[in-house]
Amino acid sequence: MIRSRAWLPTPVFSLLLLFVWLLLARSVSPGNIVLGGALAILIPLLTHRFWDSRPRIKKPLKLLRFVLRVLGDIITANFEVAYLIANPWRKLNPHFIEYPLILEDRFTITLLASTISLTPGTVSANLRMDGKSLLIHALNANDEEALIKQIRERYERPLKEIYEC
């Protein structure tokens, strides 16, 4: 008996690949369905051993709250950055900050770095090789410690609670 997990290591990803293939082909012909289905099976089969395992979501409701918080922060930061740009007489204080990480799992560190980069005015620039700190560029960082505390409380601690790590 052949286990379905062996043929479809990531079934949701396979469905997404098939869907994207059909969108790119702009046709739902039998040939495109067969070709897209073959790609949707082969690509995950050939690449799944290179992927890191994702930690399990421990608190899904906190994840929803985290996503809503990030969306709100993105909207707020867009207005703040627009205000800074629209007022050229304001003196900006761009700064690189070395952010010490509490997180240890590569997946959650990637989520944190992506969240920081999604928020206008901040960009994750580099992760140290030892994985202990993240280099962040802030467009207007008046208080380095306040920014570190804000990132830790708003993003890093919730990620640590959400995922089992």
Rank of each mutant, 00 (worst) to 15 (best):
Y163D: 04
A146T: 00
I41L: 12
S53W: 10
E144W: 11
G121I: 01
R106H: 13
P100C: 13
G131W: 00
L159E: 07
F13T: 15
A82C: 12
W89S: 03
S117P: 04
P60C: 06
P55G: 02
C165I: 11
I151H: 04
T108A: 04
L35F: 13
S117W: 00
L101I: 08
F96S: 15
E104P: 13
G31I: 09
R154E: 05
V81R: 00
A40D: 07
L42S: 08
T110W: 12
F96C: 13
N32K: 10
F50M: 15
L16D: 01
P44D: 08
L45Y: 06
H95C: 05
V67Q: 13
T119W: 00
G37Q: 08
A40W: 15
S133M: 11
K160W: 08
R128P: 07
A125Q: 10
P158G: 01
L118K: 05
C165P: 02
L112P: 01
R90D: 05
Y163V: 03
V70I: 14
S27K: 07
V67I: 15
L159F: 10
L23K: 06
T119H: 00
P88G: 09
L8C: 10
D130C: 06
N126C: 02
L18D: 08
L147E: 04
D73W: 07
T122W: 03
K91C: 11
F107Q: 04
I136T: 03
N140H: 14
S117V: 10
N32Y: 12
R128N: 11
N140K: 06
L92V: 13
R152K: 14
M129A: 09
G36Y: 13
F50Q: 13
L92S: 07
L127E: 06
I102K: 02
I162G: 02
L71F: 01
L71C: 04
I151K: 01
P30A: 04
S27H: 01
P120V: 08
G131L: 09
S133I: 12
Y163Q: 01
L118S: 07
L61T: 06
G31M: 12
Y83K: 13
R69L: 06
L64N: 08
T115H: 06
L46S: 01
L64I: 14
R56P: 09
L16A: 12
P60D: 03
A82T: 03
I162A: 02
Y83C: 09
K62N: 08
P88H: 11
S117N: 11
D73P: 03
E144L: 10
L35C: 11
L68P: 00
N78L: 02
I102A: 03
V20S: 15
S27M: 04
P158L: 03
A125S: 13
Y155D: 05
L22Y: 10
L39V: 15
R106A: 15
